[in-house]
């Protein structure tokens, strides 16, 4: 199988995530979009690992993907906590409400 398919898929998911990050108003949905981007990266890594460098004894690509999953979990936790905290302070999770600080 050609690596180009999964790679383009990853690029697409990544771009969709970027779209979500910028366009979504709800902070939780923004976080979800970020997760989408990280998952796209994982597709890349796995594709490269298994299609291009299958013999790597250190299994670099898949290990990298595992680490990303771990870090992503940590980020989700922290991110949600931040969102909750903000929600408690202002009863809103709208990202564009967060504009007290500018200039």
């Amino acid at each position: 199988m050609s690596p180009i398919g999964p790679l383009v898929l990853a690029a697409f998911l990544f771009s969709a995530g970027v779209y979500g990050v910028i366009a979504r108003r709800n902070a939780v949905l923004v976080l979800i979009s970020v997760e989408l981007m990280l998952n796209a990266v994982n597709i890349n890594l796995v594709t490269f690992q298994n299609l291009l460098f299958p013999g790597d004894p250190a299994v670099t690509g898949q290990m990298f993907a595992l680490f990303i999953i771990g870090v992503a979990a940590a980020e989700v936790g922290v991110g949600l906590a931040i969102v909750f905290n903000m929600f408690r302070n202002r009863a809103s999770v709208d990202v564009d409400d967060a504009d007290l600080m500018r200039w």
Partner: peptide
């Protein structure tokens, strides 16, 4: 520096 984090992201 508009304060809009999504603009920043963009």
């Amino acid at each position: 520096q508009s304060g809009d984090v999504q603009k920043y992201a963009g």
